[in-house]
């Protein structure tokens, strides 16, 4: 694998993570518990779309085959998507969505802080812009998880259930493969190994405030980074890509 290919994969994966989570969050549009939260969730979906657009555009440029961000978003099948599995899981209830937001945004808080220092100027610039958005996503998720966890017996039970169910999908965020290691040597990629301690400490602290028990570390799901997905991604893509698949190059 050349460095160019590695960088393409890297930007593509970051783009895919944003795009797929964005698709999930936008499903809350008109379905959130109340109007203000509806706006908050779709706001976050739009932040993620912006990030996905920037990352996929860059991936296309690095690849050098003239593919645009739209080509990459709408013309790839599920085996060519490299997002973490946690992003594609169905929204579940509101507690489940918020716990996922907490796990992901806490990770991204550490990740983009480091990616800002990347020797790749484009990645560093996207990271700096993203970090401001992520700080808000994290604050929002943290407040909700604490509010629900420390709320009624019912809301606490729902948060605990979500934490237990999602825990096995958190390991994948810290995986490093050959491409990552190659880019790490050039100072381009983030060493996600180094993020793990900070992530676990912050999550533990927040869950303690929410009266939620930390699950024991067990089997961690993996696969998304290699294009092996849950049954859910195909459904997201079929909805997202329908128009471009049915009417290629359609414009309006």
């Amino acid at each position: 694998m050349t460095q160019q290919q590695a960088l393409y994969n890297y930007a593509l994966r970051l783009g895919d993570n944003s795009l797929i989570l964005s698709a999930r969050l936008s499903e809350w549009c008109s379905n959130a518990p109340f109007l203000e939260e509806d706006l908050a969730l779709t706001n976050m979906a739009l932040d993620l779309i912006g990030r996905a657009q920037a990352m996929l555009k860059y991936a296309g440029e690095v690849e050098g085959k003239g593919r645009t961000e739209d080509d990459l978003a709408y013309r790839r099948g599920e085996r060519d998507y490299y997002n973490h599995l946690i992003m594609e899981l169905p929204n579940g209830d509101f507690a489940y969505t918020m716990v996922r937001q907490l796990f992901v945004s806490t990770y991204e808080l550490f990740f983009f802080e480091e990616l800002q220092k990347s020797t790749d100027a484009t990645l560093a610039a996207i990271a700096a812009k993203t970090l401001k958005e992520v700080k808000y996503h994290h604050l929002h998720a943290k407040d909700w998880v604490i509010r629900l966890g420390d709320g009624t017996a019912e809301s606490n039970a729902r948060v605990q259930k979500a934490v237990n169910a999602l825990w096995m999908y958190t390991g994948e965020m810290f995986e490093m493969d050959h491409a990552d290691t190659m880019l790490l040597k050039e100072g381009i990629a983030v060493n996600t190994d180094n993020l793990k301690l900070g992530w676990i400490q912050m999550v533990t602290q927040i869950l303690a405030l929410a009266n939620i028990d930390l699950p024991a570390d067990g089997y961690m799901q993996t696969g998304g980074r290699k294009g092996i997905h849950t049954e859910y991604l195909g459904h997201i893509l079929s909805e997202m890509q329908y128009l471009q698949r049915a009417y290629p190059d359609a414009t309006w």
């Binding site: 109007l35 203000e36 908050a40």
Partner: peptide, 20 residues
Amino acid sequence: SIHASDKQMALQNARDTYSR
């Protein structure tokens, strides 16, 4: 106006509703 249960939530909901 917005709905919220506490100060932090009020500020966040105001931000999400009126400063997009």
